[in-house]
Design a protein around this nucleic acid. Structure first.
Lengths: 215, 215
DNA sequence: GTTTTTGCACTGACCAGTCAGTTTAAAAAC
DNA sequence: GTTTTTAAACTGACTGGTCAGTGCAAAAAC
């Protein structure tokens, strides 16, 4: 899952990234295992072993198993949000329409999921669970991601490009869901399809070329 | 979750439904707990306690914790499929279009999720996990549900109602995902919205009244 | 010389699954 | 219609194993 940027740990800035490197190895190990088995079924021993570190190191770097998981969530959604935002901004810069921006975000979402399938799966599995310790973390993190989509929708309506009858929060959720589920399904059950096929199918849905009577 | 019909147990028919009643209580207890906490984090003791039976009873009725879960999955998806199929058939019978049938299925999906939110959540959380014992059960069960949507899409294309450029399997997955995620999000984060609002938002997306340039 | 990592033994809680025995209710015997 | 028998259904204490988290001395990295 690459290196984490920004203020992450206690020290951080000076010296070097030995701790960061260790943390990254632990994220990488944890994300796959937890996606496959779930949080509770994944043991700290397993994570340590896959990361190639001693169990004690896990506890030197994270207060608990749950905290490792929470940091992982924050880190991963940060990457996604960044990627979506960049797609929107790039389209903007090159003078594209808002619909084009949404389309670019769909593509960025698909790319992200193709790159980090485990993370996506884990996110989906945990997002709507109630009563877990990290629920509040997830709430914040979801809001962050959905907000990017909502903003583009709002701009599209303002620009007269999208119907002003649309319900922004619900439509944003539906779009995100469409991409999320289609992508996971693609990876799990139709891996022979290309990312372009998937993108084209979603694009058609977004642009109303499915049910809008056509030849 | 009501009673299960059909040939379910070893004896069954004669006498009465004492076992069935017990199983139903166990399904009911398990679905909520597992949706909230996940499979591994939910203990058999908890399930038994909530169902108001002794732990041994769980093992008298099911071979293992995993099998209880698998039966629960089969049962729940059976209900969903039935409901989707009925929505499609009803529309058919009353001479509606295929798009109307899809719309009715969206409504049926939303109704189902509103009635059994825990089950839906649990299904989504487990569907794309690899390497678990019940994976094959889930595969079958998913296919069953998605097939209903695919069939209507196919008929819509044949009738010239839908563009023949659409990719049936991918579009079906995307539609299911749209409904699933929008509904879960509605329940979790925007519960103040009415089911009609949610339905309207999804309907608009299906019928291309979002991105298809409109007034 | 300070920070980080290692290796490993240990603990205490927790939990899936078992089993010998009890209850329930209906059929069989009287 | 009351007693006896039977079998299914249920009970809950118990077992064997697993796992999060700890403690610590010594090594490695910086």
């Amino acid at each position: 899952m690459q290196k984490a940027a920004g203020a992450t740990g206690s020290k951080g800035s000076s010296g070097g990234g030995r701790r960061q490197a260790t943390k990254a190895k632990l994220y990488e190990a944890a994300v796959t295992l937890i996606a496959e088995q779930g949080f509770s079924a994944t043991t700290v021993d397993e994570i340590a072993e896959r990361a190639g570190v001693a169990k004690g190191t896990v506890y030197y770097n994270f207060a608990s198993k749950a905290e490792l998981f929470e940091e992982l969530l924050r880190y991963g959604v940060g990457l996604l949000t960044e990627s979506l935002q960049r797609a929107a901004d790039d389209t903007e810069r090159s003078g594209g329409t808002k619909v084009a921006a949404l389309d670019a975000m769909i593509r960025a979402g698909l790319d992200f999921i193709a790159t980090y399938p485990s993370f996506t799966q884990l996110y989906v599995a945990e997002l709507w669970r109630t009563g877990r310790a990290w629920q509040s973390t997830l709430l914040v993190v979801r809001q962050q991601a959905v907000a990017v989509v909502e903003e583009v929708l709002r701009e599209g309506v303002a620009a007269g490009e999208l119907s002003d009858e649309i319900d922004i929060p619900l439509t944003a959720a539906a779009l995100v869901g469409m991409v999320l589920v289609a992508a996971l399904d693609w990876q799990a059950f139709q891996p022979e399809r290309s990312i372009d096929d998937v993108h084209a199918a979603l694009s058609r849905l977004l642009q109303g070329r499915v049910g809008g009577s056509r030849a």
